[in-house]
């Protein structure tokens, strides 16, 4: 009997055919590994991005609030320009008045009307953003990755009628997105 005939008799199917059953789990294992590896890579990437955005929102808030005391619109604008150096996220920020007496109440933060609700001292609005006004890049409730942070701050006023200074609590609201 020839060598080839001998091999056929022993069930030899050829170099690929003999290993074919073993290739199936092998390929399955490789596919599974690369799928999990890619998913894990994407998960790391997404989570890192979320952390960096959350930290960027905190940094914007910290830059504007400073030591939690604002001496007026000039201090606010000064700190706003400092916060604008943050290029990672787009943001809008501003002040909302907090209640100081029994007759007052703080209404919840509404994203739809946030820009209009920001406090104005009669002349200027306490509003800060790093996006141009006419760019149309305003956030909507549907925006993904929208982060909102708020910080209580003290704002100093001067009563022009009586000439007295007073400080009232305000809420600095920072909304960031990519």
């Amino acid at each position: 009997m020839s060598k080839a005939g001998f091999l056929r008799e022993r069930g030899f199917l050829g170099p690929i055919g003999d290993d074919l059953p073993s290739l199936i789990p092998l390929l399955f294992a490789l596919m599974m590994f690369f799928y999990v590896f890619t998913s894990a890579w994407n998960a790391f990437d997404t989570k890192n991005s979320v952390f960096n955005d959350a930290l960027a929102a905190l940094n914007v808030g910290n830059a504007i609030k400073g030591n939690n005391y604002l001496r007026g619109i000039s201090t606010f604008e000064e700190r706003c320009s400092e916060a604008m150096s943050n290029k990672r996220v787009k943001f809008i920020a501003g002040l909302l008045p907090l209640s100081t007496g029994p007759g007052q109440s703080f209404s919840e933060v509404k994203l739809e009307t946030l820009e209009a609700d920001f406090f104005s001292d009669g002349e200027q609005k306490f509003f800060c953003t790093n996006i141009p006004e006419d760019s149309g890049e305003r956030p909507s409730l549907e925006s993904k990755g929208l982060i909102m942070r708020s910080f209580p701050v003290a704002l100093e006023f001067k009563n022009s009628a009586t000439g007295t200074f007073y400080v009232r609590p305000m809420l600095l609201v920072v909304v960031t997105w990519r």
Binding site: F51, Y69, R149, F151, P152, A154, V167
Partner: peptide, 25 residues
């Protein structure tokens, strides 16, 4: 990391709140 970022935010909030209480008129 997520917990630390959240904790940092609430620490900032409570510190700001306490300072604002003490600064208020």
């Amino acid at each position: 990391m997520q917990q630390r970022v959240e904790a940092q935010y609430w620490r900032e909030y409570s510190t700001g709140a306490l300072e604002t209480i003490l600064y208020s008129s």
